[in-house]
């Protein structure tokens, strides 16, 4: 059985279609394994080799990975929710209620999106604190630290823009209060509030603007920055591991 599977796989690898997709042969030596990672669009920003220490739970508590997994969950559930949600004042609240009470699995997806969002803010903050206390902002990691701070802000903006979309009392007053905080900024404050809301009140325009920010602009920015963030982890020489660990004394 195993031999037939092996031979089938071997035959498959000889086919023209396989060879057209996977440009290299089997990854059976260290060199070809490295090449397999380098030559793959989805893997090339991951390290070819990692130190075993940096894979330990206490090195990172996998907080960055958890944040990313939550982002993927939010991306998928968010797209699914978009199939039932109209970003317009007469529909938005009813669509949200429909998702809760009428749509099959709607309440599951909505709550998954909501809870994953809460958890992501928590995970991203925890990730930042952990990196900070391990000195992850020091050279050569300064740039990636800065990217991480922007990613934290993007996470918060995503939360805030998503908060308006249910179009209930909580959403309305949260955005009323939040945008009034913006207008406290000297000189440009009320201008920025006007642009953000597309008017003087939290109305139709504000809902649409927050929707576009929430589902297009901010996720695109987050995606780009996450790519840079992951790639730089590898380029900066992996996770910061305590010097004691580096010496192998522990």
């Amino acid at each position: 059985m195993a031999s037939t599977f092996d031979s089938t796989l071997r035959n498959l690898r000889e086919t023209r279609v396989w060879k057209s997709i996977f440009r290299r042969g089997p990854a059976n030596t260290n060199r070809t394994r490295s090449l397999a990672v380098f030559g793959n669009l989805f893997l090339h920003w991951l390290p070819v080799k990692v130190r075993e220490k940096s894979l330990r739970l206490r090195a990172s508590y996998y907080l960055g990975s958890i944040s990313f997994i939550l982002f993927v969950v939010l991306f998928v559930t968010g797209i699914l929710l978009m199939f039932y949600y109209h970003p317009a004042a007469p529909h938005a609240y009813r669509d949200m209620k429909d998702l809760q009470f009428v749509v099959s699995s709607g309440v599951f997806l909505r709550n998954l999106h909501r809870l994953a969002a809460h958890l992501m803010v928590f995970a991203v903050f925890w990730h930042m604190f952990h990196v900070f206390y391990r000195g992850g902002y020091k050279p050569p990691h300064e740039f990636n630290w800065a990217v991480g701070v922007v990613l934290l802000l993007v996470t918060l903006f995503l939360s805030y823009t998503g908060y308006l979309l249910p179009w209930d009392q909580l959403a309305f007053w949260a955005v009323t209060v939040g945008t009034n905080i913006i207008s406290a900024m000297p000189v440009v404050g009320s201008k920025i509030r006007f642009l953000l809301l597309g008017g003087n009140i939290v109305g139709e325009n504000a809902l649409l603007r927050f929707y576009v920010l929430h589902v297009v602009i901010l996720p695109l920015v987050a995606f780009l920055l996450i790519g840079i963030h992951f790639w730089r982890v590898q380029k900066d020489g992996g996770l910061t591991v305590k010097r004691k660990d580096d010496d192998g004394k522990e």
Binding site: F194, L195, G199, N200, G203, E204
Partner: peptide, 13 residues
Amino acid sequence: TYQYFAPNVLFEP
């Protein structure tokens, strides 16, 4: 771009 994002007509009360 600024002008585009600042609405000229508002449908507010």
